[in-house]
Write a protein that binds this DNA or RNA. Structure first.
Ligand SMILES: [Mn+2]
Ligand SMILES: [Mn+2]
Ligand SMILES: [Zn+2]
Ligand SMILES: [Zn+2]
Lengths: 133, 133
DNA sequence: TATATATTTGTAATGATTACATTTTTATGG
DNA sequence: CCATAAAAATGTAATCATTACAAATATATA
């Protein structure tokens, strides 16, 4: 029995071939890929894979707390890492780096009752792009 | 001489009537409005105002560091407040609340050279929406 | 006033995401 | 093994915020 298969089952997701492939891709490519990137990469081995299926599957994973969506100004990114952490987005090359700090808890606030998620994103230029004058 | 006029001049922006109106709206409505909201509100007094002009003007203000853009999953929001602070987005009513904490500085990181901006956004349900069972 | 420049406008294009109907695959029971 | 129902995957069309761009209008300058 494969690890990914049982993992999906444990999260009440039927482990179809496609779903396992998408999960494995996210697990092995922890660079916050876009839907486009996932679709393109898997099209080689799954020639009939549709973008709609990638969207559907990601939303399924999100509902079952296997994946988190990161909203940037352009495309959405998907992150399989569940531990709370921050990100750095290079606005030149669009790379999204993991930053290993835990975002601060929301302070008590009159208008806030229930906090379900935090996103801490830094923007700027990465080393590679800075050097490439 | 009006305050907004000199303020725009000081930021190297020619204070046209439209630009002053948009600036004033942001200054007086600090609820992180969308382009849609700005356009709709000002259309009453500026019937010929086009959405393109709202977009153009906001981007101009952003380039001159008068306004910050906040990227959420749906529409973009615009914030005239320059002091570093966080936000809470109610995913029920889409209200974006100001949270008065300063986002932590980015830690030193091998890949990062130049950090220009931070966005710290909490997601959840606000008090009003929680009560409205 | 004439001319150049800046601003605004209207319309069309873009492109990621969603909606939805159809097709294909999988599970189940006789 | 077949029949049938449910689940999964697909293809295409619609949506809609944002951008591109060219034309029109307003403003400054000489
Ligand atoms: Mn990450
Ligand atoms: Mn704010
Ligand atoms: Zn970079
Ligand atoms: Zn709310």
């Amino acid at each position: 029995m494969e690890r990914v298969q049982t993992l999906l089952r444990n999260h009440d997701i039927r482990p179809s071939y496609t779903r396992m492939a998408i999960y494995r891709y996210l697990d092995e490519n922890r660079n916050h890929p876009t839907v486009e990137a996932i679709h393109e990469a898997l099209s080689a081995s799954l020639p009939t894979l549709s973008k709609t299926t990638v969207y559907n599957t990601l939303h399924l994973f999100i509902r079952h707390h296997l994946v988190k969506e990161i909203d940037l100004q352009d495309h959405k990114r998907y992150d399989i890492v569940q531990e709370p952490h921050a990100h750095f987005k290079c606005d030149v090359c669009d790379t999204l780096y993991d930053i290993d700090i835990v975002p601060p808890n929301a302070p008590t606030h009159d208008d806030i009752v229930d906090v379900r998620d935090v996103q801490l994103v830094y923007h700027g230029t990465c080393k590679r792009c800075q050097q490439a004058v």
